[in-house]
Amino acid sequence: MHDVTYLRPTDLKDAVRLYRSTPECRPLAGGTDLMVMLHAGTFRPAPRAVLDVWSIPELKGVRRTQGMLEIGAAESYTGMIRSRDAHEHAPALVAAARTIGAAQIQNRGTLGGNLANASPAGDTLPVLLAYDAVVVTDRRAIPIDQFFTGYRRTALQPDELIVAVRIPLGRHVAFRKVGTRAAQAISKVVMAVSRSPARVAIGSVAEVPLRAARAEAALARNDAAGAVGAVADDIRPINDVRSTAAYRRAVTQNVLRELLHAPPRP
């Protein structure tokens, strides 16, 4: 990674300009994914430049705006965990943030990074789906359910920067991550659920973080048990180094049952 050019814009405007004018450039925030891949040479195609967005003032902070909770794309998970607004209006996001890595990663990881990386295991992504969050970029607002387009693919244009995430207020979302270890774990199943409106969002069970359509339909009919049954058909889990398809399927149903306080299996 010795020949990767490091660019440090002074503000958002400068960042947008640099990002649009620099070929093969990737935004760098806390570096929790990108720095690992750059060092190991596993980022394909290898970028020629990184744009350091970590310190851009407009991308920091957690605030109330236009009846939504707005979180800067480069705000750290620690910033969310310490934010009174986040605790009040998006407690499930705070809960998710607390399960990510440990202090070192929470101090550096960001929502912008989690979104741009678009890992199916991204811990905040089901939460954002369950909240019907909006991804604000340098040019538009993208509803979260249109953001993930394929395995590690997003709706972002090649020169489009994530600026913030907005979360509607007043929704109750329950969250649970299953990751084998109590800290420093990548999820095997990660889930966020809202009763009203019915949202069942799950990570690590398909090539993208997904909304479980059949489960949500059952939940909309107030049929919790039906949702638990239906969710098995919504997911596409695989066997990989972390877990098995069978386990992910069983745990998805168990966790959904637990989050919905649905009656146990007969």
Binding site: R181, A183, Q184, V241
Partner: peptide, 26 residues
């Protein structure tokens, strides 16, 4: 939790992100 899966004669858990040892919380 310490598991090594063997695939085609190689260890799949060949990074600290996949070979998990207990943390202080565990």
């Amino acid at each position: 939790i310490e598991e090594i899966k063997v695939k085609d004669g190689g260890y799949q858990n060949d990074r600290l992100a996949t070979y998990l040892i207990p943390t202080a919380l565990d």
